[in-house]
Every structure is written in structure tokens, then in C-alpha cells.
Design a binder for these strands. Structure first.
Lengths: 340, 340
DNA sequence: TTGAAAGCGTTACCAG
DNA sequence: CTGGTAACGCTTTCAA
């Protein structure tokens, strides 16, 4: 009696298979008494409705795809995943994860084979510099396509993205308004590639500085360092090599800011005493560290994206399909007014 | 022509549906020419084999369940997930994640409703203080049950766990062998609850100290602090309240060690100059920080667990069903010989 | 409120 | 190498 099927249950409960089915999926159509009996028997026989059969019958797959350019283990990706999961799982969906769609080879493989075709009810594209041709390919699977932090909404049925440029501009403005004069932006393509976000953030910094320069004296610069696992050390060297150490440092992400603070401490540069620094993300350890930073909430973005997907799947109407969210400045302990 | 089914493809290719099916799943049984034709047509019609139908027919679900006591976003859980995913995804399985099986309520709900019954091909239990009765319930779904960092292997078909006690013992021994005399173990149930690991690690520390005390003078103690989001600050206060500041600190996890190093710096205590400290996990920022720590590799554990599950699903034999792995001491910059 | 039967899209056996 | 056909386990009319 390894596996009882719906017939076994029907027989044991003295009803038809239709009734067994209804007892599970439309309990209100079955008399209290019959239902209890059926569910009882089912429990005794370790029976449950088969998702595969339900899926087949209904024409839905109860599965969604999530595309990420790199590994799920970065802070951003994990949070997005958790957010999507928290909505989709209770709704009965599995998430089929496609990571590392980053090299030319994996991209081609994915977008030409399109393994998810006819096998998902929606597609999420997370923080992914997807190109228009690829979106076009995706559309061929004829399901809603929802983006999270995507460079362009073209071809997407819905999306939610963070305003990277505006956020970083706000961060720089904060530093400037504190009175700092020498302000530096260490910039690299990080190991954990955030794709287009990196560029947008740099633009925000530059914009804030240019705007401020029109009004007052400001010595600002972008310090470009090579990407790779040593990007923090590269930034550190570049910073230390400056003629004059800056009053303020604006970082593209907390993963840059946090190690920098630690390492600078060892070179006798202490924040906020000697310099102000602000991060971006409000990710792991930022709170522990007391890092002043721009907060974004990728988990909430995941949830919002999932809500949209669900509505799209059910043919409902979306209020606004495409959303932009503003990161928030979180003041903690690494910024202080300029004191010459 | 929204959705073409197997019949449409068969017709368009001038073959039977059997041949279409075989062209996809048993290409070697179909002539090169026919196969190309079929795949061509299929691609043109945006057709693909339905996983639901295949699953139904085969009696498999192509889905596994992963149970975690808390959120997926902790370092350990993310890595385990990524490890399992890297093996199961290519093998054609989706992962159905069940998080937050931690309160009495969610546990009861999960283990009595057993929503995964008949709907997964295997179950993973990750870092989960599951009780014997719950395991018994799980067995009722009649699929392989594979554990990762579980307190007891009872009822599990396979497992892989880290030797927390042995690892922490090794960490403490290292500190002792460096000649340190006053050694402290700040201990709390962390926010990100690692369940039984916490206890095992404390035991390892105590054991090392007791063993060493028999041989030489050693002033050691466990500093218990309340759990909660402020556990690091609690540990910090406790440490600073000591009559004499310790030579060495042994931490239950990097999430304790790293913020501690940072905060102690602000109180003028600098490592390795003033004290040695070793963490546990080798998780985020440990390398950046130069933290000496005990490394464990949860991603590799996830992979190993998934390999076992796959073999079990396919009815193959496991060499050794239950594995224990030893964490490795990674020497970096936060330990130094005792210098009075 | 319940039962009978058709059909969802495959796969696999058996013929040819 | 290819085609016909019977399941796989459910849901859903339609009748009773």
C-alpha cells in the first residue's frame, strides 16, 4: 500500500472519485459529513491531490521562472528571491531559478532554447541587463514578463525598479550639504555585478556634484578602480594615494563602504571624525556598523513584482504597470558636518 | 494561434504525436531527418513538451521540498539553497521552499497538513531542530529524506552535517596554543538562529578549555548574553565590563566576531595587537576583514545533500548515507601569539 | 449533493 | 524507425 490513488480513497470512503476531488478543491460543494469522511480516509491512506494532474488539467503550470544574471547569493538577489517567494509560494507556485545568465554563451543557450517555454506561468527578470532582442525572445512564451531593476521597460508587462541615479544624487547632496569640500566617489564594477545600477549611481553622484559646483567651491572626483575580488583594496590604495585625503566618500554600495571604513581605521583615518562616508543599499552589517547609507528594499520589490505577476496571470488589470521607488537616506554614525 | 499542442506540431511536421514526443525526449530513436523537421516546426510554433504532462505520466513530481526553520536570507541558508539548486535544477527539479517552520504553530500546520505529501520526490531538512515525531510524520510521504546539519540522523535516509563541536574545539585550541591566558566565549542564541549548532559550538569551546586547564593555568569563561537583534552590543558591554579585558575571544559565528572587532576598535581595543579573536563560518566580509575563522562550506553541503537525494530518488545505493564534515581553521589577521 | 464520463498532454507498449 | 492507443490522476460538465 505504498501509494493510494484517488480511486482507493473513493472506494474506501464509499464515494466516487468526483466527490473525493471536490472534497479537496471545492469543499463547499460536498456535504459536511461526506467531506469529513473523505478527508479522514485520505489522511489514513496518505493521500493528497496530485499537483501534476491538477496542473495538466487546468492548463497552468503553477510555476514561474526567475532569471538572474549572476548568483543568487548576493544580498540583493537573495532578498528579491525571498520577496517573490513570500508571495508566490502561498499562491501555490514554485519558482524555477535560472542563475548566471551572464556570459554570452549562457545567454544564447537560454534565450534560444528557451527551456521554460510552455512551462511557466510568468517570468521574472531580476536586475538584469537584458537586451531588446532577448526580451523579444522571451515574449514568445506568451506569459507575463515582470522586471525588477531593469534598464528599460520595453517589452515588459510590468516592472518595479529603484531610482539608482536619484538615490545616489541624494547621497552626494547630503554630503555636500554637510559642508564637505573634497568629495570622492570610488567606482568599480563590483564582483557581485549589479549591472546597470553601477552606472546609474555614478551618474547620480556626478550630477549632484556638477549642480553644487555651480553654486560653490567643490573638489570632487570619481576614482575608477578595476573590478574583481580586490576592488576594495584597489579603492583603498587609490584613496590613500590622493594628495590630500578627502572630507567625504560616497560609495556605490555598502560592500564597498564597510570594508573601507574598517581598513581606513587601520591607517588612522576614523569616521566620522576625519571624514564622512555614505553607503548604498543598507545591506548586511550596515546597521551593526552604524553606516549612514541609502536604503533600498529589494525584498519589498520582490513582493511587489510577484503581486503584479499574480494579477497578470489572473487576467486582472494593473493600476500602474511600471513603478519606480526612491531609496531613503538612513542617517547613522558615519557622517558629520565639515569641521576644518 | 496562441498555443500549439503536440497534435498541431505532429500535423505540421507530417508525423504522429509519438514521434514528436520521441524527438524531444528520446532523440536517438528518431531519424536525424525527422527529428530536425519536428524540432524545427516545434520551434516555429513555440511548442515545448509540457512538464506537467510528463510528470503526470511518469509518476514523478520533478519537485523537491526544502524545509528551513527560518528565513532563507541568512548566509547559511542562502548557501545551502544555492548548493542544492546547482544540482537539482540541471537534473530537472524545482525546489519548493518552506521557510519559517519555527513556531509551534507553523510546525504543527506543516507537519499535520503535510502539504507536500505525494507532491515531492524528496525532502531536504536544513539546519533544523526537527523532533523525532516530526520526522515520523515526514516519513509518511514515502520519499527520501535528506538532512543538512541536523541534530540526529534518526529517520533520515541520508545527511551531511558539520562537526560544530569539534570545529569550535579546534578554534579554542588554536587560541590556547598561541599562549593566551584569559579567553572568553561570548554566547547568545543569535538572531539568525542556527538551532542546535549554537549549543554544540559552546560545548566545543568548553571542552577545549577544560582539557587545557588540566595542563596549565587558563582563565576561561562563557559570557552568556540575551538573544535578539542587539546581541552584539550585549556581548560588547559584557566584554567591557570584565575586570580585566581578555587576551582572546572565541566567537560562535562571524556575525558576532566582525561587529565586535569594529566596535572594540572604537574603545581602543585593537586586534591582533591587544587581543586575538577567531570567528566561525567564514561568511560575508570575513575575508575582507581579515578575520581568522573556522570555515565551513554550506554550499558544498547543499550540493552533497542534493547528490544523495538524486541517487536515492533513482534507487541507487549510497556509499555512506551520513557524512560529517570538519570545519577548517583559516588563519588571517586577527590572531597573534600572546605577548604580555 | 453525488456519479459517470470526457479529456488535459504526455509516454510507452505493441504493431508494422 | 514510426504510428496507434491506452493509460497517468485529476477536474468538470451533465444528469440524476
Amino acid at each position: 500500500m505504498a501509494k493510494a490513488d484517488i480511486h482507493d480513497v473513493a472506494k474506501a470512503a464509499g464515494v466516487s472519485i468526483s466527490t473525493v476531488s471536490r472534497a479537496f478543491t471545492r469543499p463547499e460543494l460536498v456535504s459536511e459529513k461526506t467531506r469529513r469522511k473523505v478527508l479522514d480516509v485520505a489522511d489514513r491512506l496518505d493521500f493528497n491531490i496530485s499537483r501534476s494532474a491538477t496542473a495538466l488539467k487546468s492548463g497552468r503550470t503553477n510555476r514561474v521562472a526567475l532569471l538572474m544574471n549572476e548568483d543568487i547569493s548576493s544580498w540583493f538577489n537573495t532578498e528579491v528571491f525571498a520577496g517573490i517567494e513570500s508571495v508566490m509560494h502561498p499562491a501555490g507556485y514554485d519558482i524555477s531559478l535560472f542563475q548566471h545568465i551572464d556570459t554570452a554563451a549562457t545567454r544564447r543557450e537560454f534565450f534560444t532554447d528557451l527551456p521554460i517555454r510552455r512551462n511557466v506561468d510568468a517570468v521574472f527578470v531580476a536586475s538584469f541587463a537584458i537586451d531588446p532582442h532577448e526580451v523579444e525572445q522571451l515574449r514568445r512564451i506568451h506569459v507575463p514578463i515582470v522586471g525588477i531593476n531593469i534598464p528599460s521597460t520595453d517589452g515588459f508587462d510590468a516592472s518595479i525598479s529603484i531610482d539608482d541615479e536619484g538615490g545616489m544624487r541624494k547621497a552626494a547632496q547630503h554630503l555636500i550639504s554637510l559642508g564637505h569640500r573634497r568629495i570622492v566617489y570610488p567606482c568599480s564594477e563590483a564582483v557581485e555585478d549589479m549591472g546597470a545600477s553601477i552606472d546609474a549611481r555614478a551618474r547620480g553622484f556626478i550630477r549632484a556634484c556638477e549642480e553644487a559646483s555651480a553654486r560653490r567651491d567643490l573638489d570632487w572626483r570619481v576614482l575608477t578602480v578595476p573590478r574583481g575580488p580586490e576592488f576594495v583594496d584597489s579603492a583603498l590604495s587609490a584613496l590613500l594615494a590622493l594628495d590630500e585625503f578627502p572630507d567625504a566618500i560616497c560609495c556605490q554600495m555598502d560592500m564597498m563602504a564597510i570594508p573601507l571604513v574598517l581598513k581606513l581605521e587601520r591607517y588612522g583615518r576614523s569616521t566620522p571624525r576625519d571624514y564622512s562616508i555614505v553607503g548604498f543599499d543598507d545591506s548586511i552589517y550596515a546597521r551593526e556598523m552604524g553606516l549612514t547609507t541609502m536604503r533600498q528594499d529589494p525584498r519589498a520589490m520582490g513582493r511587489a513584482a510577484a503581486d503584479k505577476a499574480l494579477r497578470l496571470i489572473n487576467g486582472e488589470d494593473l493600476g500602474e504597470a511600471h513603478e519606480i521607488v526612491e531609496p531613503q537616506l538612513v542617517l547613522r554614525g558615519t557622517d558629520a558636518p565639515y569641521a576644518a
